[in-house]
Design a binder for these strands. Structure first.
Lengths: 113, 113
DNA sequence: GCATATGTGTTGGCTGCCAATACATACACT
DNA sequence: AGTGTATGTATTGGCAGCCAACACATATGC
C-alpha cells in the first residue's frame, strides 16, 4: 500500500473503528491495522492531530484513563460523530462507484456476452 | 464530490479512459465525466500536467492531429501503459478492500448470527 | 543496563490536485 | 464588425493533508 493512501478518508476510518466502543490512540492504530488485514498502518503523526481535530469539531469526546500506572487518552464517538460516520459511509460508496465505473466500465446489463 | 477526491487515483483514470482508443485532452475530461455519471469533473490544470508526466514515463504516447483547422494532441496507451493499467486496477481493488473493511467490517462468514 | 513494547505528542516537509489565468480557433447571431 | 459560446491546449501558485522523524515517559524481560 503506497504511502498517503488514506488521504481524504482518514476521518471515516477513525470514526468507524470507534463505533463499537471507546479506544485510545495506540489501540486505534492496531484496530485499523487489524480490520484492514494488516494493510493500513497509520502513524502517530497521522492520527493524533486527526483525533484532536475531530474532538475539536465535536465528533469525538476524550477522557484520560489510568491503566495501572499508565495514562491513556480514550476517545469515543459523540452523537454527531455517529451521524457523520453514516455520511462518510455514503460518501465512500459514491466515491468508489464513481472511480470504479471509470476504471472498470460495466458492461451494460442485458447486452449479449 | 469533494475537491481533491481523485488524489492518488488520477493515473488510473486517465489510463482507463484511453483503453478503448486514443483521445485528446478535452475529450478525456468528457470521457471521465461521462463514465463517472457526471460526478468526476477534472480540470485542465489537473490532466495536462498528468498526461505530460505519463508520456514522459512511457505509459502514453501523443501525436498532434488536425481536425479541420484545429490542432489536437491525441494520447494513446503504450504497451507499458496497458500493463500499468492492469496494476492500477489491482491496486484499486486492494485499496477499496482495505478501506472498506475498516469502514464496514463484514460479519465473518460462517459465524452464527 | 539495555532492548523492546506500550503510550502520547509535535514539527517540517513534500506530494499532487485544483483554481485562476492566458491564449487561440470556429461558428452563430445581430 | 462585434459579441458570445463552444472547443481546445497549457502554465502557475497555493495549500490541504498525510507522513517521517523526532522527543519523551513507563513497564517488563533478559
Amino acid at each position: 500500500m503506497k504511502t498517503d493512501a488514506v488521504r481524504g478518508h482518514l476521518d471515516g476510518l477513525l470514526l468507524a473503528v470507534l463505533e463499537p466502543g471507546p479506544l485510545h490512540g495506540y489501540a486505534i492504530i492496531a484496530a485499523v491495522q487489524n480490520r484492514s488485514g494488516g494493510v493500513l498502518e497509520l502513524r502517530t503523526g497521522t492520527i493524533y492531530p486527526a483525533l484532536n481535530r475531530l474532538e475539536r469539531v465535536g465528533l469525538l469526546s476524550s477522557s484520560w484513563e489510568s491503566a495501572g500506572e499508565r495514562r491513556r487518552r480514550c476517545y469515543e464517538l459523540t452523537e454527531e460523530g455517529r451521524r457523520t460516520l453514516a455520511g462518510e459511509r455514503t460518501a465512500w460508496d459514491e466515491f468508489t462507484t464513481a472511480i470504479g465505473s471509470v476504471l472498470n466500465p460495466s458492461t451494460p446489463p442485458g447486452l449479449p456476452t
